[in-house]
Structures are given as C-alpha cells and as structure tokens.
Simulated scan of single mutants.
Amino acid sequence: MSSPPFDIVAYEGQDYAAVCKLLVESFKAKFQALVTLEDQDIQNLLMQVWVQQPNSTSGKQFVVKENEDVVGVLSLKWKAPASSFPKTNLISLAPLIKQFGCFNVFTFLAGMYALEYKPAADECYIDHVAICSSHRNQGIGRRLLAFAQQFTVASGFHALTLHVAHQNQQAIRLYRNLAFEIEQTQYNFLRHFWFKEPVWHLMSWRGTKLHSRREHC
C-alpha cells in the first residue's frame, strides 16, 4: 500500500491553530526553556503574540498537508521593499499577564526577540521549518528545503539562509547534504542565556542568480 501524498501549499488563516500547535510540538524544548506552562497554554500564548500577515511583502509561509491535516510548515522571510511601510501589531500585555503570568509573558517575548534575524537585500531566510513528530523520517523536511531552494531561485534571491545551533549536528548534516555551507559562526549571548545554546551557524545555499525579484504579495 502506497503512502499518502503530501502537498505543499500556501498558508491560509484557517491553518493558524494547527501551525501553532505544530511549532510548540517541534520546538518544545525551546519554549519550555522560557516559560513554566503546559503545552496547551504555550500554544494559546503563541497564538496571541505571533500575528501572521497573509499579504506581507516581507515573508511567506507554506504548509505541508496530508489530506487536510497540517503535518509540516516552512516560513520564509526577506527584506521588505523600501516602498512598503512596516505594519505594527500592538499587543495588549495586560490580559496576557492576567492569563499567563508576568514572568511567562516577558520571558516568552524576550526569547522570541533573541531568535529574530533581519535578512539582507536579496537574501531569503528560513525563519523556521517544522515537521509533525508522526511524519518525520519520511523525506518531508528534505522536500520543504528543496521547495525553499526552488522558491529562492524563482524569486530572484541570491541566497537562501538559515540559523542552526552548533549542538544540532543532525540538522547540520542534513543541510550540508542539500548543499548548504556554513557562512558564519558566532557566539550569541541572548540565545545562550535563554536557550543554553551559545554557538550558532549561519548557513547559506546559493543557487542561480537572477537579475530581478518578483513581488510576493
């Protein structure tokens, strides 16, 4: 019996809860390093502070679906065009603090800030890639990374980049097998403080260079 097909499709608003649940499952250790909350509460907090903009000019998210179930997610971002004005999403802290506690809210936000990265011009950055635990070791991660490489070339970016902790040697081997190379290795104080992972690599993949970049609206 053949395995069911997996489709990589553009993220839609209806996928929001499933994506947040998947991210909490995949990066559980990182979230637990920040807050003293149960998984469901972490998901609820993430859903209230992580605002997705479907029409963003500086990023795009894709999901892997098996039938209608989200089993993987890929988030890409790049430098916003100079002509676009950044949209600010104001978060009301009072209800969050009442629900989750002051310590949890502020450490959560501080940890998310520590993971932020601003891509350079003509750089496409993998903000995160995650696979459901029940669907790992089925080649979905490779497919998502290959999809990101194709997107990079088709969109006219000169490089596809990502950050990975030095401790995550399994992921580094996967990226190397897909022609990513370590471009920079740096000590990151904030990530060391929050996640106990001091050394991070910026890895890059460089495909065919195109002269112009398409709009991603």
Score class of each variant (00 low, 15 high):
Gly139Val: 05
Leu160Trp: 06
Gly139Leu: 06
Thr161Asp: 02
Ala148Leu: 00
Cys132Tyr: 06
Val153Gly: 02
Tyr175Leu: 00
Leu178Ser: 05
His192Ser: 09
Phe147Trp: 11
Glu181Thr: 13
Val164Ala: 11
Glu181Leu: 08
Ile182Phe: 01
Phe180Arg: 12
His135Trp: 11
Pro119Asn: 13
Asn188His: 14
Glu123Lys: 07
Ile131Glu: 10
Tyr175Val: 00
Tyr187Ile: 04
Gln186Met: 12
Leu178Phe: 06
Pro119Ser: 12
Ile131Ala: 11
Thr161Trp: 02
Ser133Gly: 03
Trp194His: 15
Asp122Arg: 15
Ala120Phe: 04
Val153His: 02
Tyr125Asn: 05
Ala148Ile: 01
His158Asn: 14
His158Gln: 12
Pro119Val: 09
Gln170Lys: 15
Ala130Phe: 09
Ala121Gly: 03
Gln169Asp: 05
Ala121Cys: 07
Tyr125Asp: 06
Ala165Ile: 01
Ile172Arg: 15
Tyr125Met: 07
Cys132Arg: 13
Asp122Ala: 08
Leu190Met: 15
His163Met: 03
Val129Leu: 15
Val164Phe: 10
Gly156His: 04
Gln186Ser: 13
Gln150Tyr: 02
Asn188Thr: 08
Phe147Thr: 06
Phe193Met: 11
His128Asn: 14
Cys132Ser: 15
Ala165Glu: 08
Asp122Gln: 12
Leu178His: 11
Ala148Thr: 01
Gln150Met: 08
Gln150Val: 05
Phe147Val: 05
Val164Ser: 09
Asn137Tyr: 07
